[in-house]
Write a protein that binds this DNA or RNA. Structure first.
Lengths: 131, 131, 131, 131
DNA sequence: GTGGTCTAGACCACG
DNA sequence: GTGGTCTAGACCACA
């Protein structure tokens, strides 16, 4: 994990630290910036880098392991699992995420974002993620 | 509020009831299904319909009032404010929502959704909202 | 929860406190000593009674809720769910428990327990549980 | 140790490897499948067979030696000790194992196992062990 | 006043 | 030296 994959978190945010870490790493994983076979830094090291308790990083890793991104074992570190996208599809979760997307779009519109702007944002995100 | 604008909530969901109500109403407001000038049902009536405490509905209305959708003066019920989209733009909030969108897209990809599917979903949502 | 259902835990045991609580309560639930519809004491009160942190009790309740014994909601306490035995059967878990039983019996034999003694113990347990 | 006494472990299990080995061997020892006077395979050979570090196997052997099953003197391999069942009885340990049995039975009932099924399982295990 | 979340710290398990 | 467990304490969400 080098400069290319550095992540940053905001301890003053209402979003819990562990979730910020999970989210940041998931983006890097989806995008392929962190490739299968690579090892993530040890929980304690990353914790020091980010200025958080190691349990906070640990929780983030555990969640990504549950999502099928990491192989996480005692004494063996955290390794990114080899697998191609699309991963195993989880219909129930997808339905839930679709609802979240609907609500998020409504919030964006409510906050004054034009439909065009939202569409443009999404294009950027999907291109980012495509390869 | 008639059949067209009926909303439904799931009391067993992990999403708190008041947020389900806020979200559902916001979608209807953004879409224009509930038009400016209309009155929302009285807190107590909607509460009974949904099977929740009236404080729960009250909280939902308050939040929508804060977002600029409702006029909530004492004893006069909740009236949808007259205003055209786009509303006042809130850059800080938009930035935050953009981050949420990024993470949501990563989660969808992580859950096995093809990029095309995500794009199609968003299309539907934006068209739904335009007219 | 009265004298009949009082439980006791040993803080010096190698078995974690939360598991001792889960185990003790599960026995009472299986046996029917704590009946469906009853309310368990609030986490904080039981915690004080047992001399542990409320999170410890909380974890125990959560686990029992996952097993389908409790309805556990914010602000509404912990209520024993109405349902008849046998509950929904979980084959994978049962297979795992069978393996555990096999190993436990081997350990008992290894510790010097005659086969007859083990059988007698089990009879007592099953009779206890039957109604 | 031949085909009859081959053991298998699951490296993906939550149960640590060394415990799987201890448990599997103890069952064979209690059952008499591995007889007194026999030699267990050398630590390194078994480790390779099972795909684990030899320390893992070593730990398993040590534990069985503590339980009085193996003679483990340096350079002479692991020999099964001559002794008849019942072995020296350890009341304190038995009490603990009885508690474990009680909790295991409750878990089985909780997972949907009928009392009859549990009894049948135990029968099989005890008969298996008797001869 | 209920249960729940998040983070912290001491200690353990495993390789 | 790796990740993991258990308990604690401050604070939050909900009714």
């Amino acid at each position: 994990m080098n400069r290319r994959t550095a992540i940053q978190i905001d301890l003053d945010s209402v979003v819990p630290a562990y979730r910020q870490i999970t989210d940041a790493l998931r983006v890097l994983l989806v995008r392929g910036t962190i490739a299968p076979g690579e090892k993530l830094p040890p929980v304690r090291r990353l914790a020091i880098q980010l200025g958080v308790h190691f349990n906070t990083v640990s929780e983030a890793y555990r969640q990504l392991a549950e999502e099928g991104w990491l192989d996480l074992r005692q004494g063996r570190g955290a390794t990114v699992i080899e697998r191609g996208l699309p991963l195993r599809s989880d219909p129930k979760k997808l339905c839930d995420l679709r609802t979240q997307l609907r609500n998020l779009v409504a919030q964006m519109r409510s906050a004054g974002a034009p439909a065009k702007w939202i569409a443009a944002e999404l294009w950027r995100l999907l291109e980012d993620v495509r390869p």
